[in-house]
Computed example of a mutant assay.
Amino acid sequence: MAKRISMIDLFAGCGGMTSGFVAANGYKPVMAVEWDLHAAATYAANFGESHMRWGDIQDIKDDEIPAADVIIGGPPCQGFSNLGTRDVNDPRNKLWKEYIRFVRHARPKVFVIENVDRFLKSSEFSLLQAEVRHGGLLEGYELTYGLLLAADYGAPQRRKRTIVIGSRIGKIPLPEPTHGQGNPMGLKSWRTVHDAFKGKQLLDVPTVKALPDSSVSFFGEKVPGIYKSEDLHIGRTPTDVSLLRYAHVPPGGGRFDLPEELLPNCWKNKPSGTTDVMGRMRWDEPSLTIRTEFYKPEKGQYLHPQWEPGPNGYRVDRPITHREAALLQTFPDTYLWCGTKIQIAKQIGNAVPAVLAEAIARQIKPYILSA
């Protein structure tokens, strides 16, 4: 039997990174940690409850941390994000120190940190670099880091993420892109929104507005679920004004395509910036970044790409559904979900695209197996 690579997933969310690593074959999760109950329940529904620790990572004692070949995870990034306050004193930014504590006790051969693009310019990243130097908490590890674009690894989404690979078995380069824009030599073409939705029969305005009425127990707590991916194809009830706005926006367009009488005052008074809000996706391109409020077109380019010009043009005037967002994040269509509509949307938007995680897993695997 081939050697199994033991793995710990910290700040695991709903399991986006674990999904990618498991898809790369050979990885066995031995512990996962997540403080949000509904995200932890989604993880447990897909990968098992026994090794998921729901709760505050700081409550896990040193002697409870198992040995592992790999540690993966993305410490909360709200303080680093361009959408956040960027408060250097935000306690969430200090949770990466808990990540280091796990590395010191589990002694993995390799660790992987995922974060927002601005993490590379943060004071926390500078401190992380200092810890691998002589006398530091991570002495003996070598770091490789950079910005990876999810579209370059098969995701139908232009999502940039900082990836840091730490290794004590020799320096490991970041994975080379497998996809590129257009028809690049030696690479596959970027996957598009059309590729993600193809064959899923998603050209409709869902009549179902709510998740099924069901619940399940995880960690001794009752949570909504378990839902299949098909259950996530749920609609909203937009106002008449919203529907008029949607109808004016062509693929690739946004709020600047609206006639003045349909502009809210906040947009009338802001003639520049926020160019992607009230935006419509393009069939033949990857989407922009899927965030946690993808069901609100006023938050980004989240309108369904189907739009034909003319009074009789066929249009799907609605934001993408939860199921469509999960497909753009490359979750398998067999993935299971727990939580309310808002909670599941947060899980989807906060996740690492599974195929990006899989590319990283495949990159580090031969180094681990040969060590």
Rank of each mutant, 00 (worst) to 15 (best):
V70K: 02
E285A: 15
V164W: 01
R133F: 03
W337D: 11
G252M: 08
A354T: 15
L243N: 05
M281S: 13
F331A: 00
A67S: 14
G254C: 12
H134V: 09
K97C: 01
A24F: 04
P251D: 09
I72M: 13
G235W: 13
P156R: 00
L138I: 06
P311I: 13
A44S: 15
G313E: 12
G253E: 02
E221A: 12
L120T: 06
G186H: 06
P264M: 12
I165S: 10
R245H: 06
G339Y: 12
V241T: 15
T334Q: 14
E358C: 07
P29G: 04
D333E: 15
L149S: 14
R315Q: 15
V249K: 01
Q129L: 14
W337N: 06
D257S: 03
K94M: 14
N265W: 11
R92C: 02
V216H: 04
R159I: 05
K296I: 13
Y295T: 15
Y43P: 00
A44C: 02
D231C: 05
Y27A: 00
D9M: 00
S370R: 15
I342T: 15
Y314H: 15
G279R: 00
R104P: 01
I100K: 06
P212I: 11
D195M: 04
N25H: 10
I290W: 04
P311R: 10
Q58H: 05
D9A: 00
G252N: 05
R107H: 12
G48H: 08
A39H: 05
S122G: 07
P91K: 10
D195G: 08
L211G: 08
P76C: 05
K209V: 08
H38A: 06
L328E: 06
L174G: 07
R236A: 13
K228P: 02
I72Y: 09
E308T: 11
V355Y: 02
A41L: 06
G279K: 02
D333Q: 15
P177W: 12
R4P: 02
K200M: 12
A359W: 09
R168S: 13
T340H: 14
G349K: 09
P75R: 01
A351Y: 05
Y141P: 03
E308G: 10
I163R: 03
G273M: 12
V88Q: 11
E64A: 13
G84I: 06
T85P: 03
I226S: 01
L243T: 08
G136P: 00
R158C: 10
I226E: 11
P175T: 08
V103S: 04
F256N: 13
P271D: 12
A24D: 10
L328A: 04
V193L: 10
V33K: 00
V103Q: 02
L328C: 04
L202H: 05
D36N: 14
R159V: 07
D231P: 03
R318L: 12
K3S: 12
